[in-house]
Amino acid sequence: MKKYAALLTIALAFVFFYAAGDLPQIGDKDSPANVHVSPRYIEDAMEEIGSPNLVTGVLADYRGYDTLGETTVIFIAGIATAMILRGKKEGDDAE
């Protein structure tokens, strides 16, 4: 079983190392991730939101609906943990 796992990992390694050649150089100002949406956030956030911390501005204002979903996920994870562990233990049914 470990043999197949190692073979699969090596195959995936070749895919990753081949794809790494096409990724943008680290720190590139003109890479696709840095020219598409974020310049608008950096330029306009100060006038539109008035919050100097851009991460908070993006998280709570531009993508506030997203963050509501994330908060709900965390809340549900807490409820799930409590519900999994607070049920009856096996064999406790007799009491």
Binding site: E48, G50, A60, T67, F75, I84, R86
Partner: peptide
């Protein structure tokens, strides 16, 4: 905007803090 962000961040803080405490006390 600043007041709104402060309001929702208070909500996020309470939710995250107490969820981790709940997970810890359940585990």
């Amino acid at each position: 905007h600043v007041w709104g962000i402060l309001g929702i961040e208070i909500g996020v803080t309470i939710c995250v803090m107490t969820t981790f405490i709940a997970i810890f006390s359940a585990l």
